[in-house]
Design a protein around this nucleic acid. Structure first.
Lengths: 402, 402
DNA sequence: ACCACTTTCGCAACAGTGTTGTCAAAGTGC
DNA sequence: GCACTTTGACAACACTGTTGCGAAAGTGGT
């Protein structure tokens, strides 16, 4: 019934493990089924297939799907062709059973989206933001944006995902020392927003939200466009990401390993490893800008020499975008080799200024250095960071680690 | 009772998720408790503390520990000081309740160890091996070594972990194309060994076993030496790894993120991320040797230019070991920044030839480039690869992903 | 048209998990 | 010696997925 108050402790994909009790077990299995149904798209899946994929007995699947049906999350979707006996009745996720909100706090703009359970944008809102004006003003802006997105007649909201720049403590929901904005250091953004909004709030780095968007794009591709509402504010966000979801060699439920590379005033990476965002021991993973690519190269503001960031931004400064793309490509190839990455997504202002140059440039280096020429796939980050933030809020239903 | 036949499907740390039924739930919670007791060392832990750390109720912990006690895995270990009421009775893991075997197949030697549940070496065996002589001869050598280690009067063996060089398919247990040894390609080593030994067998890359050893070393440090038996065969494996386990800022149960760097005929990395070995989508993660560190540098046999491997091995070839250490250090620093690594462990023949030079050289670069000067810890891989392979076999009890 | 067969899927009884309520045991501190 | 706190076990309980069985709904052969 009350699916918001799920028991806390169960196995994270990358965090500490906790004990599992009966409610947590139920939640895990329900999330698993929902995740499979989400990956199946509007065509749906039969109970037998769900049983085979989860490893549960058909009877258990029937009980679980009955509960989900009572909650309105799942509905019947016709029958499949018979395989020699009674045809299986297909079950489909009801995308409008719940919604979630994602907010992207950037340095000068705020963008917020409301998405359905398939991750599709149902409504969006946004406007200018002066990040330097301090946390209080930003909180007000977020509260106003969420209020505009809220629909009293619509389905309940699962939560709000907030993507913010710079270092921050994901667990505590506290901002870190954002370069150039000292007033934000230590601000408990998650707690404050939860108090103001009365909804669960997740706070994470914008690059991690980008990685979540990259992983979620795979799933979104299995669902048709919702119809009217279209993403407008995402400047230069071309959907070069319509690769066929099938035949990816994956069991289902999205790509195994995605990397989101952000090239803006700095360089950052979001890592989606094995079905969840990887944050490292102290939420500091993804430091991509200061990977050394040229030993004893030009000095960087970080103190080292020959970092990706210096090399790339120098190339950008002298107008050599193909050169910058090559630099990013070499660093990306290092990362792809190290982590066995499936997909590389590119985003950020510099990329948006010349998307084709970067996709081609990075793709060329990756193809030259990859062992498997078909991998990894390089694409533009079609979905914005706000969509990724919303995606993270959806994980309370689909069970991926948050 | 029969703890070997645990229900298959439950949540891996990095793999695909499966449904959870009651036996799997029980197994998860028992593994969790055993893992905590293992981390506590011989001093033991009270039931109340176990309940607090797992999130389970005290009553559930009592039931679980009663089952574990009946299996002989856990025993009482005195009482703690009272905190104002009845003093808690301490529970301790019984290390000799089960054993496991780890085998390291190297290019010219084989080393096998039998370890107890604390990961301590109880017996070892080894000898020369001609890896090029083909799989059949190696299988015979492994069978002989395991037979020597087996003790009919000893505790039951949980399984055998096998660490082998080169690419291989961890899931299927099949060898890949080991450079220089074409006869191994496609050989189903795990299946063959399971048939010959009658025990569960895990096959993984030697670098991954090294990472497991690195993570396990943290736990071994909490248990005293077993007494007589001492590691002899591990050439140059100095135990520079006695850092105090406490005060590491971690909740318990080992470091969050470890990296094992192997410097031998090639360079490889084993990644221990968030409590488990990270293998990537196609078991290909850890490709460390061909990270580009010097754009347009000297050509490497892999086709790229300026890889770590060329730079490092060139420095070694001209006798410049500090230079080689610096190269490895810069590449390690990239990796540490990207993944937020806690510990870096060094191993392999080249490192063993001048351990102090490499530990100091790598440490210096890491200290210079790290944000937090206290991290990461650099040390020599005190435990050998065989110990790591045994550690992986222990995961069937302690629940970390395999 | 009929029958045998396969497959799907729900009902009822069941085994086993952690949880709750209650109480005895074993300490500390006044 | 008494009040209080804390530990931890027993019994009843709520709820999970599992098993056994049978009805429903198709296909394909006769």
């Amino acid at each position: 019934m009350n699916r918001g108050s799920r028991n806390s402790g169960h196995s994270d994909a990358h965090g500490r493990r906790g004990g599992v009790n009966l409610p947590a077990l139920r939640g895990h299995n329900e999330a698993l089924v929902l995740d499979l149904l989400r990956g199946a798209g509007p065509a749906g899946l039969g109970r037998t297939e769900l049983a085979a994929r989860t490893g549960l007995t058909p009877q258990a699947v029937s009980k679980i799907t009955a509960r989900l049906g009572a909650d309105g999350l799942v509905a019947e979707a016709g029958r499949a062709a018979s395989t020699g006996g009674k045809p299986r009745t297909l079950l489909r996720l009801v995308p409008d059973a719940r919604h979630a909100v994602g907010v992207h706090l950037d340095r000068d703009v705020l963008r917020a989206v409301r998405v359905d359970l398939a991750g599709r944008v149902v409504a969006d809102s946004g406007g200018p933001l002066d990040f330097g004006a301090g946390p209080e003003a930003a909180v007000e802006a977020v509260v106003r944006a969420v209020a505009r997105l809220r629909d009293p007649d619509g389905p309940p909201l699962l939560g709000v995902g907030v993507a913010a720049p710079g270092p921050l403590d994901h667990r505590a929901g506290v901002m870190g020392r954002v370069t150039g904005f000292p007033s934000w250091k230590g601000f408990p953004l998650r707690g404050v927003l939860e108090g103001r909004l009365g909804l669960p709030v997740l706070l994470d780095k914008d690059t991690n939200a980008g990685a979540a968007a990259a992983a979620g794009a795979w799933l979104r591709a299995t669902w048709p466009e919702p119809g009217s509402e279209v993403d407008v504010a995402g400047a230069g966000a071309v959907g070069a990401d319509a690769a066929a979801p099938a035949g990816d060699g994956l069991a289902g439920g999205g790509p195994h390993t995605c990397v989101y590379l952000h090239v803006g005033t700095g360089l950052g990476a979001g890592l989606w490893l094995g079905g969840g965002v990887y944050r490292g021991a102290r939420s500091a993973a993804g430091e991509f800008g200061h990977q050394v690519l040229l030993l004893d190269g030009p000095p960087c503001r970080c103190g080292a020499r020959g970092c990706v960031e210096v090399l790339c931004l120098e190339a950008v400064a002298r107008g050599d975008l193909p050169g910058a793309a090559r630099i990013v490509g070499e660093a990306a190839a290092n990362l792809v080799a190290l982590l066995d990455v499936d997909r590389v997504l590119l985003g950020g202002r510099v990329v948006a200024s010349a998307p084709d140059v970067f996709v081609a440039g990075v793709g060329a280096v990756l193809a030259a250095r990859a062992l498997d020429p078909a991998r990894p796939v390089v694409a533009l980050a079609g979905a914005g960071v706000a969509e990724g933030a919303a995606e993270m809020a959806l994980t309370s239903l689909f069970g991926r680690a948050g």
